[in-house]
């Protein structure tokens, strides 16, 4: 059973600069930030190290940080330019009973994060959902396509309506002949 600071120390000695920071300002749980393209190596280490043994990925969530500039485009929609999209990982160990949270941030215009699907198989559908609803690309994912929205959603929508959980999302008017807003 290890605390968050000890886990951070172990990771820092192993990986150096890819592990960015341990954020202890959040009142409830400390979060370790990791570089988006190194998350695969870090996760493999977390699962296989005998003192850590994080063999259970509890939750993987995509978040739109909405920390860019608000721009108004030609149609009068308010868009967000720049800023980041983040992915949060909550890990847990069944045998050693400790938990840790990781965070990865990537740019909004070209979001790319390495997939951890071959480490924890439960990440497969969670990453598909983050791709579907937020537009985050996961490299080396075996089957990255939409999971909750219809497969032909892209044909009936413009750029601002493609990924529903983004903060600047706008409803399309019609989908296959059915009116979408109330």
């Amino acid at each position: 059973m290890k605390s968050a600071e000890e886990i951070f120390e172990i990771l820092k000695t192993e990986f150096g600069d890819s592990i960015l920071v341990l954020d202890k300002d959040t009142p409830t749980e400390p979060i370790i930030s990791v570089d988006p393209l190194q998350i695969h190596r870090v996760s493999k280490f977390l699962r296989e190290h005998p003192d850590l043994q994080f063999d259970n990925l509890m939750c993987l969530s995509g978040v739109d940080d909405a920390n860019g500039n608000k721009v108004t485009n030609a149609d009068g929609d308010e868009l967000i330019e720049g800023g980041t999209l983040s992915v949060y990982y909550n890990l847990h160990s069944v045998s050693l009973k400790h938990k840790i949270s990781l965070k990865v941030s990537t740019s909004r215009t070209d979001p790319k994060v390495e997939s951890v699907e071959n480490i924890w198989k439960s990440a497969n559908w969670h990453e598909r959902e983050a791709f579907d609803l937020l537009g985050i690309f996961f490299l080396n994912h075996p089957d990255l396509r939409r999971i909750l929205m219809p497969y032909d959603w892209d044909e009936f929508t413009t750029e601002v309506s493609r990924h529903p959980l983004r903060k600047d999302y706008k409803n399309p008017e019609f989908y296959q002949g059915m009116k979408v807003p109330y």
Binding site: L148, P164, N171, M178, K179, Y182
Partner: peptide, 15 residues
């Protein structure tokens, strides 16, 4: 779900 449901059909009588 009438207000923010982007994937909900607002009433089956539309179809």
């Amino acid at each position: 779900y009438w207000e923010h449901g982007y994937h909900v059909l607002k009433g089956i009588d539309r179809v």
